[in-house]
Design a protein around this nucleic acid. Structure first.
Length: 477
RNA sequence: GGCCCCUUCGUCUAGCGGUCCAGGACACUGGGUUUUCAUCCCAGCAAUCACGGGUUCGAAUCCCGUAGGGGUCACCA
């Protein structure tokens, strides 16, 4: 007996960008497909033309691609069960709607939107849940395609299993006659996704929490259609700051592409998003893509919401950066050099990158961290005053020490070994602590509040530039 | 209001009846590594496991309540 191919899907509506919360749903669906040698499908649910945002379909695809979540079937590349854009599948939905009409399980809604709205507000005023079927017409008109088409539900209680939440149940009171086809001819999500998941042979429906309350209605519809339902898995929300509300665009949730643009590594973003609400049961925190594919499981997905913590993402990106071989890191941060770096060859930039790899947290930080390797910064004497070690030492002493350093470095060939040797020698001849002597030289040669190790920095900077900067500092201090 | 779901350090979490007066990580604090910032290493801070009842020799873990939070009740997804 051959196991059924696992087919998962990510089905966003093109109404904007994807934030961390929705991308996590996509990631888990993708991981599940990869781990089972299955198929990951991208389907665009563009059935609400009022809310649709032009270009967001492309934007979503770009986001997935940049994170490495490539789909096997989708609107741009097609596949055996296309089209993968719901607006291009209208005839299919009408066909299935007709089946329901024929079996007496769908009927035309005779009310105007205002009338339905009135039913709703009345129910709300009476602190009652709104049920359309309380107003179900006895003899609905023949459906002519201009009225909404409603599902004729058969209310009953349901028990079902959710791969994440476990066994769930709900009573008959939540089952209602929801709209299948809107007056504009487009299907609702509630109808379209069921037809598509079936036709596209989806095995696992992984979706966010707001849909769990609707599951009993879906189950009722599956029965009316005589279809088996796929495995269902509910993802908890990713919460925004404060932890009370789900992450949302309204409250400033960032586009995942923004993180990519800031130079966060895809593998770090994926690691972070995956471990926000999932872990493998060990104390491991840093996972490669391959490890995630191997170890992921729906059963270990958290049942409660998880708050988004950017600090943790920053830390994690630093971890991934440090793990990367220099050459790979070089390729990934190519776009983040200070603009002055264009005048320098790749060998020099490699040497600079090697020095800052340990302290780099994300790509965009590269500018601040390496600026002084590429351009002379104006001499800033306030750096001396803000130094814990130097603020108590008078300018004359500082300049005297710097002159001594200059004298020695003028003799150096500026290899790392020689610079190191001379710096050590200077500590002895000046009888100074490194905290004092090295700070002076460091500030003189970098004019930066922070830099890599002094000997390394000088060796990369080179003799001419280092001595030049020492002279400038001596003149200005 | 009805229905459904959730509840362990500030945050992400481990834990599926005894090895937990609760472990790890982020953040924070202090110390160490020839300067700074960072890495790395040590140490510290931090949850009476939402609360109250049971069950049990024994409960963060099982059961029942309560409270708090969230979701849903659209011709949005």
């Amino acid at each position: 007996m051959t196991a059924m191919t696992v087919r998962t899907r990510f089905a966003p509506s093109p109404t904007g960008y994807v934030h961390v919360g929705s991308i996590r749903t996509a990631l888990f669906a993708w991981l599940l497909a990869q781990q089972n040698n299955g198929v990951f499908i991208l389907r665009l649910e563009d059935t609400d033309k009022a809310r649709e945002v032009a270009g967001s379909g492309e934007h979503i695809m770009e986001s997935l691609k940049r994170l490495g979540l490539q789909w096997d079937e989708g609107p741009d590349i097609g596949g055996p069960y296309g089209p993968y854009k719901q607006s291009e599948r209208l005839a299919t939905y009408r066909h299935w709607a007709q089946k329901l009409i024929d079996s007496g399980r769908a009927y035309a809604d005779p009310y105007s939107p205002e009338q339905v709205e009135r039913f709703r507000t009345d129910a709300k005023a009476a602190k009652h849940p709104f049920l359309y079927r309380d107003h179900r017409p006895n003899s609905p008109p023949k459906w002519d395609g201009t009225q909404p088409l409603r599902f004729h539900s058969e209310p009953k209680p349901y028990h079902w299993h959710d791969e994440v939440l476990g066994d769930l149940s709900a009573g008959a009171e939540v089952i209602d006659d929801f709209v299948l086809l809107k007056a504009d001819g487009y299907p609702t999500y509630n109808f379209a996704h069921i037809i598509d998941d079936h036709l596209m042979q989806i095995t696992h429906v992984i979706r966010s929490q707001e849909f769990t309350a609707s599951v009993p209605r879906y189950l009722n519809l599956y029965e009316a259609l005589r279809l088996e339902h796929p495995l269902l898995a509910t993802m908890p929300y990713v919460m925004g700051p404060g932890g009370k509300k789900k992450l949302s665009k309204r409250d400033g949730a960032k586009d995942v592409l923004d993180y990519v643009r800031q130079g966060f590594l895809p593998e770090a973003l994926v690691n972070f998003i995956a471990t926000l609400g999932w872990n493998d049961g060990t104390e491991q925190e840093i996972f490669s893509m391959d490890e995630l594919i191997k170890k992921f499981s729906l059963e270990r997905v958290q049942r409660s919401g998880a708050q988004f913590d950017e600090q943790r993402l920053i830390w994690m990106d630093g971890c991934h950066i440090r793990q990367l071989p220099l050459e790979k890191l070089y390729k990934k941060v190519e776009h983040f050099w200070p603009k002055e770096a264009t005048n320098y060859d790749t060998e020099y930039k490699h040497r600079v990158l090697a020095l800052v790899q340990d302290r780099l947290k994300y790509g965009a930080e590269l500018v601040e961290l390496t600026k002084f390797f590429f351009t002379d910064l104006s001499v800033d004497a306030s750096l001396l005053d803000s130094s814990k070690q130097l603020k108590k030492i008078d300018r004359q002493t500082i300049k005297k020490l710097l002159n001594q350093a200059k004298a020695s470095l003028e003799q150096s060939d500026f290899t790392l070994d020689d610079v190191t040797h001379r710096l050590n020698e200077l500590l002895e001849t000046t009888a100074q602590k490194p905290a004092v002597l090295f700070s002076i030289i460091r500030i003189a040669t970098t004019q930066a509040p922070a830099s890599p190790g002094l000997a390394d920095t000088l060796a990369v900077l080179g003799k001419e530039r280092s001595l030049d900067r020492i002279d400038q500092a001596l003149a200005a201090w």
